[in-house]
Design a binder for these strands. Structure first.
Lengths: 215, 215
DNA sequence: GTATGTTCCGAACATTTGTATCATAACCAG
DNA sequence: CTGGTTATGATACAAATGTTCGGAACATAC
């Protein structure tokens, strides 16, 4: 930001921020006028133009309340870095994880948790599962951890996936490698042996994109 | 919420949510009209009244874009389930972790990350440290993980703490037990041996309250 | 069928609200 | 002081936008 801004501009900026906190929409020019005890709408407009030129905010012409705070000033911005994802019951070694159809995700029955957006960036349909038991310690995942997953049917080589093994009837979290009809599931802990099974005995239920542990 | 809402109302609601995501202000009646392919503004108004009556949103009479989403639907707003915490460099086995004074936390030099509030609930002065290296795998913590900590000098028995061992000059994350002048540091992995050292050779730098892993 | 309530339509209306204009004051360098 | 830019004021205008209203279309119950 090139220049420093005047006291009046500072006051306008923080008024907009406060207004945005209280209501859920930006103020009008006149809201700012009264809020900052400015004598005329044109003065507000004048200063808003400067604030825009200096990169503090963005305006939309002819749009009522068309003010968007930028960068540091963003009030909703911090909250915008958050994504609410549904939590589907528990995942344990001995039971498949059932994923409800996505149109039911927003009912009250399903618990949600807010996650920082860097966990879900670029992913789609992300959901979370609570881990029960110690069966996934080899993936550095313990009892009570929240595993963040992205649904997928064709994982990339090396991805950590939640895989259902139809032979042993269990879910496991391992790194995925596909080689000529066979699937190798490699524990994150290198000292442990991989599982190698025919591709048709494995169904991948999702790709692990993150883990959250709370103590 | 008492009644179920119609498909059109559902569509209006999610349009508002999407609009709020993209811009930083709610849509006008006509925005909704075109966005949801509704034939008249009065129909939008009609359905908005219902949505308000059912508690999905709140409207401000005669105020342009005077729509506020409520509860579940809230995109931006008085939502406080997120906390922004500072991230202090890296923590590695071989180096002490230096915690800057708290009055410098909000400068731009320091990286921040938004965390779901359930991780920091009831805690004070929470900060995060990025883990480098595999030295903490016995605590189910891997390379690149983000460890969330609460500063403390007198940890409770059983807490997982970040401890600096002055003898070996290293930081380690272990469960803390104090017995008559001696401190026992117990790895989370039960098969590994605890470290037992005199209390004056240990300085506890913080209590681990959570872990976040992103892949 | 009739009756009744809900949902929708189109258009007109009234207010809100951004923008433009012009004049004046304040400031600053020369 | 004098010319320039910058900041302020008051007001008017036009576009954006919420609201209203009579009636049509549709469903549901009697």
């Amino acid at each position: 930001m090139g220049t420093k801004i005047s006291g009046k501009q500072q006051s306008i900026l923080s008024f907009i921020r406060d207004f945005l906190e209280q209501h859920q929409f930006p103020p009008t020019i006149r809201d700012i006028q009264y809020g900052c005890k400015i004598s005329s709408t044109s003065v507000v407009d004048y200063n808003l133009r400067i604030l825009q030129r200096e990169g503090y905010l963005r305006r939309f012409a002819d749009v009522s309340r068309g003010i968007e705070l930028l960068g540091e000033n963003q009030v909703t911005g911090a909250r915008r870095d958050v994504v609410s994802v549904p939590v589907f019951g528990v995942i344990a070694a001995g039971q498949p994880l059932s994923i409800p159809p996505s149109d039911t995700w927003h009912t009250e029955e399903i618990d949600h948790v807010d996650l920082p957006s860097f966990l879900t960036e670029g992913k789609d349909g992300v959901f979370a599962v609570r881990v029960k038991g110690e069966s996934m310690i080899d993936a550095l995942i313990g009892d009570g951890d929240l595993v963040i997953m992205e649904p997928t049917n064709n994982p990339q080589t090396g991805d950590m996936v939640a895989a259902w093994l139809s032979d042993t009837e269990e879910v496991t979290l391992k790194h995925f490698y596909m080689t000529s009809g066979m699937v190798r599931l490699q524990p994150a802990n290198a000292t442990m042996d991989p599982i190698i099974v025919p591709a048709d005995k494995v169904s991948v239920q999702g790709r692990v994109v993150g883990v959250v542990r709370s103590m």
